[in-house]
Design a protein around this nucleic acid. Structure first.
Length: 190
DNA sequence: AGCACGATTAACT
DNA sequence: GTTAATCGTGCTC
C-alpha cells in the first residue's frame, strides 16, 4: 500500500510539511485518478502561531485541526476559494499543513477541463487552484486521508533532496504580527 | 443582528 | 502594481 499512514502526520508539523514535498496527492473521480506531485507547503502550528486559524481557539471551524492527524481540513476563504490542509500532530494540538501547489501528473484532461483557460503552468500553482482542479470543497472537511475510502489521499512519490528544498516566509499574512509573519515555515521545491 | 476581514485569484493598468 | 469578486467566521453590541 502506497498511501501514507496516519503516523506520517502525527509528527512535528514542520517535519511533515518538509516531507510532503514530492508526495503524490491523489483524487479519484468516477474511477479516474486526478493527481499531482506536491511541490509547495506551509506549516500552521498551534494556538500560539498567530497566523494559524487556531489562534481563535477551538471553534466550529477549527475543530478539525484539534482532531487526529491525517484528516483533511478544508476551509473557505475570501468568499470564493477552498483550501486543502492535512491535520498534523497529536489529537488535542491544533496544527496543519496547507498544500499550496502541485505538479499535475494524472488526469490531465479533467484538470484541463477546469483550468484550461489558464496556461498549463498556472493550473495548480496555488492552493485554491489545485482545490478547483481536483474538485475539493467543504464535503472533504474532516475526511480521513489515510485510507482509500474517501477518494482523496496522499501516496509516496518522489524523493526530494535537501539541496532542492527552499524555506521562506509564509505568504498572504498581511495583518499577522511579527515574529509569526516572517517565520520561514513555507517549503517549496526549486 | 450586524460588522470587518480573510492562509486567493484573475483581469485589469 | 492594483483591484473586484464574494461569503463564512468570529467578535461585538
Amino acid at each position: 500500500m502506497n498511501i501514507l499512514p496516519c503516523s506520517f502526520y502525527n509528527r512535528p508539523t514542520l517535519t511533515v510539511a518538509r516531507e510532503l514535498l514530492g508526495k503524490r496527492l491523489v483524487r479519484v473521480e468516477d474511477n479516474i485518478r486526478v493527481a499531482g506531485i506536491i511541490v509547495e507547503t506551509e506549516a500552521y502550528v498551534g494556538e500560539g502561531d498567530l497566523a494559524c486559524h487556531a489562534k481563535a481557539g477551538k471553534t466550529p471551524r477549527t475543530r478539525i485541526m484539534y482532531g487526529e492527524a491525517g484528516k483533511a481540513y478544508v476551509y473557505f476563504n475570501y468568499g470564493l476559494h477552498w483550501m486543502l490542509n492535512a491535520v498534523t500532530e497529536r489529537e488535542g494540538f491544533p496544527a496543519a499543513v496547507l498544500i499550496l501547489a502541485i505538479r499535475p501528473v494524472e488526469g490531465l484532461e479533467i484538470i484541463a477541463s477546469r483550468r484550461g483557460k489558464q496556461p498549463k503552468a498556472k493550473w495548480t500553482d496555488g492552493p485554491a487552484k489545485l482545490a478547483q482542479a481536483l474538485s475539493i470543497d467543504k464535503s472533504f472537511n474532516g475526511v480521513d486521508l489515510c485510507t482509500r475510502e474517501n477518494d482523496l489521499w496522499i501516496e509516496r512519490g518522489e524523493s526530494i533532496e535537501n539541496k532542492r528544498v527552499i524555506m521562506g516566509p509564509r505568504v498572504g499574512l498581511y495583518s499577522v504580527p511579527e515574529p509569526w509573519k516572517s517565520k520561514p515555515w513555507r517549503f517549496w521545491v526549486k
